[in-house]
Design a protein around this nucleic acid. Structure first.
Lengths: 142, 142
DNA sequence: TTTATAATTAGAATAATTATAATTCCAGGT
DNA sequence: ACCTGGAATTATAATTATTCTAATTATAAA
């Protein structure tokens, strides 16, 4: 360690997320590719770009980025949480056979937010639909 | 194997779940009350009815009951999975402040299953909607 | 530069879950 | 009844996932 790496961040405004080098590296991993990596997978990839990064920093960064609205945490069934690049609102399909997680957008989902809020008495923030079924691969293999 | 072709009672009933005393105790815990207990909470409650039951049996039973379609596993955000009695299809609302998980049913959700299957190319099995927002309690407290 | 604040790191600690191996339970057959 | 085989249960160990702590380093402000 002991390498002095200064990052000058210009025009930082208090409302904007602070992207340190580590956080940027983590964000880049989540954004690259269309997978939904676990924290462990993010750690492994981030290490290639930044060998000194620690597991704790990956978790800290993921939490920070999640709170900043730059990534989304997706928990499905059992196992580790997965992280999704935050693009627009979207829905998820999960394969009941192999666990594959796929994004798709169903315009009709947002139309249910009002009814969902009324039925649950929650003040709504977001909605999404989850489809459980067989992915194309497992469907053929069956 | 050689002597008889007739099906045993066990074979005939193999499609039905085998509810041992322990599994019944676990099932009763999940069914009683309208909470969504974690495995640890199920263990604690099941112990009152059956002091000798072990944590491993609770996990084994929950997995068994889940595969038998008698309970459902719900993973939300981070922390432990929660278990839901399997009644009818329903949707979930999760409080972004305190983590409260509430069931509700939105008839419109099932209407989206076809479109969701088409968009994702999955063979559909089930759908459900998740609303994230503030529960009535947290809404007032804010 | 000095000071204050915040981020990063390594590793320990905790939480959640699954696996292993020994024992017990129970149904069916002799 | 006794024996036997397979499944279930148990206690415990092991694994996996996540969070916490304390020391260090970086950044921004004064």
């Amino acid at each position: 360690m002991g390498k002095s790496d200064k990052l000058s961040i210009k025009d930082v405004q208090s409302a904007e997320p602070v992207l340190t080098r580590q956080r940027k590296a983590v964000l880049d991993v989540v954004r690259s590719g269309d997978t939904h990596p676990t924290a462990a997978e993010v750690f492994e990839s981030a290490r290639k770009a930044m060998p000194g990064i620690s597991f704790a920093t990956v978790y800290n960064s993921l939490r920070y980025l999640k709170e900043a609205g730059l990534v989304r945490e997706v928990a499905f069934g059992s196992g580790a949480s997965r992280y999704d690049r935050e693009t627009d609102r979207h829905d998820h399909a999960i394969c009941s056979a192999c666990g594959t997680l796929v994004d798709f957008d169903l315009p009709g989902t947002v139309g249910l937010i009002g009814a969902a809020a009324r039925a649950s008495r929650f003040k709504p923030e977001s909605v999404h639909l989850t489809l459980v079924g067989l992915c194309p691969g497992c469907r053929g293999r069956k």
